[in-house]
């Protein structure tokens, strides 16, 4: 089943067009990897899908269907709640670990202390962070290591129970061990969530994703099951990219 369908999506920053006629259907409860060289529009695609694009001075047009309804008919706050995003650079709030995780739930009306504790604990567990930080939930999130910060940001994105989780090169600043941690976690998360991950790392796309989309110069060149895209690419440019001819 497709949770998100894009039909001839164009995205712009000012007068500059970044995405050209993207057609893409995102499968529910699967991991979709978006690959492509720098500047091909991968990040813009994610920002469009979370409606953060307009916050960054851009705009999008085209037809998007989300959960059976027109994407643009939802209030943007609702879209942002139901489609979470994690940015490339870990960006914890300058608050305690605990407050980072209760920040959004409190906004959405959760006041019960016990309920909040439950959210914090369960999301930290999902992110594999609970054991590392449970002793000191009230220390500043800024004191965590880079890998821990990124996992906290993923946990934070999950606190509002999104249906889709968008990740923009979440591992680019992390070492191998932290990257492995996060990949493990994403595989587990895919049972309950739909995941779209932008990555520079082809091996990573191959390891964890079910579907792969290849973007080049703002156009979608190829989209299909990961195995097929990597073993028998249909487009010459995809093959060239995978073989490392550019990138």
């Amino acid at each position: 089943m497709n949770i998100l369908e894009l039909l001839s999506l164009n995205s712009y920053y000012g007068h500059e067009q970044v995405l050209y006629g993207i057609n893409l259907a995102i499968r529910k409860n699967a991991i979709t990897a978006v690959i492509g060289p720098s500047g091909c529009g991968k990040s813009t695609l994610l920002l469009t899908l979370n409606r953060m694009l307009e916050e960054c001075g851009g705009r999008a047009e085209g037809e998007i269907t989300f959960a059976g309804k027109d994407f643009f008919s939802y209030p943007k706050e609702e879209i942002r709640r139901r489609i979470g995003i994690v940015f490339q650079k870990p960006s914890p709030f300058p608050l305690s670990i605990y407050r980072n995780l209760t920040y959004a739930p409190v906004y959405y009306g959760v006041r019960d202390k016990k309920k909040l504790n439950e959210i914090v604990e369960s999301k930290l567990k999902v992110a594999g962070l609970y054991e590392e930080v449970q002793a000191d939930l009230h220390k500043s999130a800024l004191q965590l290591s880079g890998g821990q910060q990124q996992r906290l940001c993923i946990a934070r994105a999950l606190t509002v129970e999104p249906e889709i989780l968008l990740l923009d090169e979440p591992c680019s600043a992390l070492d191998i061990k932290n990257t492995a941690n996060i990949e493990q976690m994403l595989l587990k998360l895919a049972q309950d969530y739909t995941i779209v991950i932008v990555t520079h790392n082809l091996a990573q796309a191959k390891r964890i994703s079910d579907y792969t989309a290849f973007l080049l110069n703002g156009e979608l060149v190829e989209y299909g099951e990961t195995k097929k895209v990597f073993s028998r690419p249909q487009d010459r440019r995809t093959w060239e990219y995978i073989e490392g001819i550019y990138g």
Partner: peptide
């Protein structure tokens, strides 16, 4: 921090 602001808006928070 702009990153923290963006993260906050990205959660759908006002």
């Amino acid at each position: 921090s702009t990153a923290a602001l963006q993260s906050s808006y990205a959660l759908g928070v006002s």
